[in-house]
Design a protein around this nucleic acid. Structure first.
Lengths: 246, 246
DNA sequence: GCCAGCCAAACTGTCTGACAGTTAAATGTC
DNA sequence: GACATTTAACTGTCAGACAGTTTGGCTGGC
């Protein structure tokens, strides 16, 4: 472990890269305990603070966890779906938010991916998935919802659809597409009329999933995509008009 | 910025969470310079080393970059597609590798997502996408390729397909599904016969993309999925037999 | 023999103070 | 005015210290 590989200029980055490589390659198995900070400092011939910075980098990526006390230290961490899911959502949201990705592009990607779930969801949906979808549709029909709450319920509805596909890997991949897009979706203002339309489409989607009609569900998703795109265009046009005027 | 929020026990984690929140919420815009480490240490009333650990955590997530020298410091980093893409790949590979996800599950997710690209790719493919696909098919037919090289070419082929869809968000989301699965795919041994079969399917896929036949391409992908699943099952069965015997 | 309570050891987390290296801008020099 | 030089504001690294936490072994009483 004494070799300090090539590229990065900073020692702490190099050391982090070294250990990361050992973990990713499987040379350090899950739950393996790394040497103590003092030992690592000696092995890499650096100060303990430098080792600590390296370990914090790895901790930030959930590659290791640290425990205090005797026989504590840094352990290779099993990346759980829950952690990966959360990181996926925030990273996607950040990517979309910081690069001002066109709404159309993000929307197209999101629905393309969601359509990929439709056949599996129709085939495997369980009663509780349907129940969640119905409940969220019902919630969306409540008067007095803020746009944000409406969007949150929208996400929960689609999340149930994805879950219904019964494939955790798919669920993880879609986290970014569905939940990571929420900040973008939040920028849309939903009139009563547009809410009604969306709710109708959601209800139809639930029906088709219940009827195990995968391709029908995919078609419904396509309609929802077009409608969402239209809505967004209207909002953007209005905003532009206001800007030009005010 | 003096408030240290709630949950995590460690100061450096708390401070990192504080700053992260400020970035994600947009309160700190892209390319904004954070206060110097000494100033942050004063504001949070901790030592500089603690601040440094917090900053390293953020750097590991590409939320900030640091520059040395006068007027250097930590700057809010724009998360580029390339960075996000890379993180996506390693995180997916890690998730799959550490949770010994069933090959069938990962494979199903991967092809479901890839089929989602087919219609868009067929519609928008440019000459260079087709050229890349053809070139990789050709490379795959070379004799003497190791399984790893064959897999790498396979990934490049599918990557071209995804790129052809012309949607960077989709491309980013699929990075995990396609490239992140490579370690799992590498576990399959490809006989000459199975390579020939895969190459034939790839060629057909390229044909259909060229012919702008999206649904045909999706069907071909389904065939490739079945064949890959069969191959994997055979490999797993053989491996089991060898284990039982030896 | 057994249990409670205590203590030492092995860790991580944090602090202090120092110095080296790097870079942009201010300053001086011709 | 162009060019070399200093200076100041940073980050990166180091060394040594101490506090807090947890485990395991030890000790003494019963």
């Amino acid at each position: 472990m004494e070799n300090a590989s090539q590229k990065p200029r900073d020692l702490s980055a190099r050391i982090a890269a070294d250990i990361r490589e050992a973990i990713v390659s499987g040379r350090l198995p899950v739950d393996e305990r790394l040497p103590s900070e003092a030992e690592l400092a000696e092995q890499f011939a650096v100060a303990r603070s430098t080792v600590r910075e390296a370990l914090k980098r790895l901790a930030a990526q959930s590659l290791i966890r640290t425990e205090r006390g005797a026989f504590g230290g840094a352990f290779v961490n099993r990346l759980s779906y829950a952690e990966a899911y959360q990181q996926q959502v925030t990273q996607s949201a950040l990517l979309l938010g910081m690069n001002d990705v066109a709404f159309a592009t993000a929307c197209e990607a999101r629905f393309a991916l969601e359509r990929a779930c439709a056949p599996l969801a129709a085939e495997r949906r369980m009663p509780d998935h349907l129940a969640t979808m119905r409940a969220e549709v019902h919630r969306q029909a409540q008067p007095g919802l803020t746009d944000q709450t409406f969007c949150a319920s929208d996400v929960a509805f689609h999340r149930a659809l994805v879950d219904a596909a019964g494939n955790p890997v798919l669920g993880y991949q879609l986290a970014g597409a569905v939940e990571g897009m929420q900040p973008l979706m939040n920028m849309i203002t939903f009139t009563a009329r547009s809410r009604a339309e969306i709710i109708a489409i959601h209800a139809e989607l639930a029906d088709r999933i219940e009827a195990r009609d995968g391709s029908g569900a995919a078609e419904t998703l396509s309609r929802l995509e077009s409608y969402t795109q239209d809505l967004a265009q209207t909002v953007i046009a209005e905003r532009r008009a206001r800007h030009a005027q005010g």
